[in-house]
Design a binder for these strands. Sequence first.
DNA 1: CTGAAAGCGCTTACAG
DNA 2: CTGAAAGCGCTTACAG
Lengths: 348, 348
Amino acid sequence: MSMTIKDIAKRAGVSSQAVSLVLNEKAEGQISTANKERILNIVRATGFRRNINASRVRRSCCETLTLVIDNTFPVCEYRDFISPGNSSFVIQGIVEGALELGFDVKIVSLSTTDGDIREKLLSHIGEPYSSGVIFNGLYHNLELYKAIEDCGVPHITVKTHTSSRHPTVSPVVIPDPVNAITEIVRGLIALGHKKIGYSAHCGIEESYIPQRFQGYEQEMRRAGLYDRELLFIVPTASAIRKLVAAGDLRERFSALLCMNDKMAWLWKEELEYSGYSVPGDFDIIGYDNDPLFPEFVSVDLKAYECGKTAAQNLIQGIKEKLTPQDALLEAKAVRLDKLNKDSCKTRK
Amino acid sequence: MSMTIKDIAKRAGVSSQAVSLVLNEKAEGQISTANKERILNIVRATGFRRNINASRVRRSCCETLTLVIDNTFPVCEYRDFISPGNSSFVIQGIVEGALELGFDVKIVSLSTTDGDIREKLLSHIGEPYSSGVIFNGLYHNLELYKAIEDCGVPHITVKTHTSSRHPTVSPVVIPDPVNAITEIVRGLIALGHKKIGYSAHCGIEESYIPQRFQGYEQEMRRAGLYDRELLFIVPTASAIRKLVAAGDLRERFSALLCMNDKMAWLWKEELEYSGYSVPGDFDIIGYDNDPLFPEFVSVDLKAYECGKTAAQNLIQGIKEKLTPQDALLEAKAVRLDKLNKDSCKTRK
DNA sequence: CTGAAAGCGCTTACAG
DNA sequence: CTGAAAGCGCTTACAG
């Protein structure tokens, strides 16, 4: 029913081996240019695609990654600040990175901590079912993570941030936001800001996300501007509301780095509701470069690139039979041109 | 390197054909029980898994679905009400439905409307690359959808809601929330509520999501309680705030059906901030059964089941060489026991 | 009930 | 530069 390389060969008047060589770009010095052209023309005209499964069987490989999607929902005490945001870009990067290297990406999802599912998953891991595993997430289902690690199957994890509440895993691909945040803080200081606040959903000590804070703290200390009074712990949207309602905010800060864009948005809404202008009275800085909130100076975590790098490093590891390499990808400050001169001028 | 059925056969002292028959559960009346047991024991002991690619090549099939993930981000004027919610459950259902029938699920993602990507995607669709396509979403990238439809590849779409702003596609799997909403409205009426409001992010005429409103309107009309004054159009969180700040809410409604759980949450927050109690003064009803907001009476859209049914119907269509069947899955009212007697009593 | 043979579509030495 | 042969791991008639 489906076409095969034999059909192509017949039409081109060559052997099927010639077609195979041409399709695999191994024709160099083996097939005459005339034959090669003829074959390629027929392939193009018919839209022929070789049977990839047969090719993989013959080459004794499976060229397939398994993407483990963790549905285990974390307890979300900070649900006001969650956004679907750019989470799908990691997957996109993984898929495109794999595709470029001839690998497919299969999905396995994990909802329960069900023993059956663990079994089912493990049975789909390792050759000839899959050559390696990508974990996308923090990773919540640690028991399963360990089980796969113990299998000895090559694997890699992609995260968009470290978390002090989740274990450090390796190999891992993760963005490094420190330089981006440093750049933003320097920009604010250069504009004359002195009271640059930091807003997070929980205390920095127990924070999920210590990385985001690092660049801020370093740079503020360097400038002699660091002050614990500048930390605003807001576990919920209504905590922001209470702070704003309490008044005297203009004495407390003129710029504010937020844990993410969604939090920046809630601050902005609240401040504007109370009659402040943003920007104007305050510079509100986001984090994540969330497509839903494109109005803020923010930090792009390179989710797509992280996914792509993870796929590439994993595949390289599979090919060289080595542990895949870790990668730290530099995050990027975005929309720095929106830093506002007015928001600290009003205070002079 | 990897084990094959020949290795198993050798150990069991039988031919490789016998192993194949046993593994495919076609041993009935062909292999002696003794041999079958011996083979199965060795398979279990070694954890052997047959090479699925080889099996598929021999059987001339590919048993692989392609899941198209649409990253095309819609313009989100209603971003205050977006939640990552239960979006991943559809994928989980697809994967598990496919797995049970021996199919794998590959991912292809689509970020751009890039011509190259269209080409790349199309080249990965259709035997021998994939037997069918599942679209998950509304579907935003219509041009691509059409291209795949034109290919003649079997396909199916899963949505968790209809949308008057997006075209109707077929075949499709989609939940039907009308009965669930009817049940909730009846429950509220039975408790004595008369002013049952409906809150949406835009007017019902132009609504994205007409289905959610249907059951409400029908049942309210039936009870002679329908009134346009009971419709609250709140495009943003701050619109809710203004309504609550305007006061007199207890005269306007005693229960409120919201477009989704996130919106219910914002109403609750706002009402409580203004000194009302929820429940108590108001019954606030959600929609989506969003795991982030488990406190509301809500409508479970059966996302997992929708995904699973889509995979099953698509695979059935592939096997029978027919267009996959549409499916309408009944959504379910959840936590009805939380409907509150007090919220309308206070008004008597 | 069992084994030997043919074949799925492809790739890779190897002889001409 | 080209073709015939062997083989990846599996499945499926077919003869005993």
